[in-house]
Every structure is written in structure tokens, then in C-alpha cells.
Design a protein around this nucleic acid. Structure first.
Lengths: 123, 123
DNA sequence: TCGAGACCTCACATCAATGGCAGCTCCTAG
DNA sequence: CTAGGAGCTGCCATTGATGTGAGGTCTCGA
């Protein structure tokens, strides 16, 4: 039996996540909680580390869906699939960065057009 | 009086924008159309270039709001404010690219954690 | 015993461009 | 004359993490 101590407000305070977010993480299957007789969530101490991991995932631009896929692999220490998943995400992120870099190029083109002294509205 | 010829379907075909998008551009104040007696949009030839410009803006990650601010300045050839606006947008884009690049760094950290052979679930 | 505060669920709002559908009018070719 | 196609408006959906608020329950301290 896991030692169940932490209530949601305290978990929020200790992790920096909002209470709303913690409930959302649970809804998305990222975080589980037991309930006390009044129906309130009680978290194990380990939830603090888990939330930290979840937030680290979010700050790495992972979606809740991907994090949900990730966590079981992490717990099973299934390195090959973990690598595959993370590499795919890294590729997605790279593609997004490339897209934005391309957008920047196009923005520079717009700047060039707009600030070209020979430009007229009909161009 | 501007020569009014083009109908929305033709404008869509000639610009690559969907009919839906053209109506949206109008709704956002990016594009104007006269109406024939039956209420259908009739565009001037110059609309083709304008839509191209609008789409160029979108592909440069500008929002419809920014493009709406941009176009009058472009027509007024008000270079200083144009520059200010575009520079601000470029800065915003840079910030986003930086954020995503930072996310990539954090993703690499997650990869490092996840694939560290000494890692355990409690970490 | 009462009030405050922490918690619960449910549900809607956000941002933005676009897709898609329903129900309608209108024009034109056969 | 009629069918079909093009246009019209208006509305809902999408994506996703989070904010926010209503309305209710529970618990503890004064």
C-alpha cells in the first residue's frame, strides 16, 4: 500500500502546477490519485516527482497524449520504444522549428517588399 | 471606378485560397468586394495581387489582425510605422523560435534522463 | 453550531484559420 | 422550363492546456 498523504492544494503548491492542471493531468491519464472517504484526491509522495516529470515534458513541447504514452514506457524501462517515441517527437519539434525559420525567411521577404522604396500598392 | 470582374470562385482558383478563406479575409477586413445585384461578390483584378500579399503574410506567420494593420500602412506607404510593425513581428517570431529551440534543449534533457541506464522510475 | 476554506464536478471560454454542412437564392445552358 | 452549379449567410467543429465560475459537500477551528 502506497503511503497516501498529499492533498491537491499541497501538491499544487509543491509542484507549481495549478490545481486545475493537476485535475487535467489526471483526466488525461498522466497522474492517478486515491480518494479519501469524502471523495477528495490523496496523492502519494511520489506524485511530486511525477508531476515534475510531466511538467518537464510539457516544457519540452510534448503533448499530454505523448506524455501519456511516454510514462508507462518509462516505468517499464522499455528503452527502445522510449527512444523511438522521443526521437519522433524530436523530429516533430525540428520540423516545427524549420517551419518557423522558413516563416522568418518569408517575413524578411515581406519586409524587403514593404520597405523597398520602388514599391507601389499594386505590386 | 475600379473594373470589377472576378467572382469568388475564379479568385479562389487564381490565388489558391479556398472560397471559405476569401470570405474570411473579407470578414477580417483584409479584402473588400463589391456586390452584384444578386449580392454576389465581384472583385477587382487587383484583388489577385492583394490575396497573394495576404497569403504571403500568413505564410510569414502573421496573424490576420497584423495583416489588417499592415495593409493600410502599405497603401499609405508609411514606411516608419510599417517597419516598426514588421520589426515587432519579427521579434515575436524570433522569440517563438527561441522558445522552441529551448523546448528542444529540454527534450534532449528528457531523452538523456529516459535513456540513462542508471535511471529508475522514482527519479 | 456556524462560518470559512478546501475540495468536488460540470461546463464554457480562450486563440485562429479553415473545413464543412444546411438551407436558401440566383443564373444559365440545354 | 428546368436542373444543376455557383453564391450567399450562419453556424458548429477543430486543437489543447488552462482559466474561471457556479453550485454543492465536507471538515475543522472558534
Amino acid at each position: 500500500m502506497v503511503v497516501v498523504i498529499v492533498r491537491i492544494g499541497e501538491l499544487a503548491a509543491r509542484t507549481g502546477a495549478s490545481v486545475r492542471s493537476l485535475r487535467y493531468y489526471e483526466e488525461q491519464g498522466l497522474l492517478t490519485a486515491e480518494r479519501d472517504p469524502a471523495g477528495r484526491r490523496r496523492y502519494a509522495e511520489s506524485a511530486v516527482a511525477r508531476v515534475a516529470l510531466i511538467r518537464r515534458g510539457f516544457s519540452a513541447s510534448l503533448s499530454s497524449r505523448v506524455i501519456a504514452d511516454l510514462l508507462p514506457l518509462l516505468e517499464a524501462e522499455c528503452l527502445p520504444r522510449l527512444r523511438a517515441l522521443l526521437d519522433a517527437e524530436r523530429e516533430r519539434l525540428e520540423a516545427q522549428i524549420d517551419a518557423m525559420t522558413q516563416a522568418r525567411v518569408r517575413l524578411d521577404e515581406v519586409i524587403a517588399i514593404a520597405t523597398d522604396p520602388t514599391w507601389t500598392c499594386d505590386t
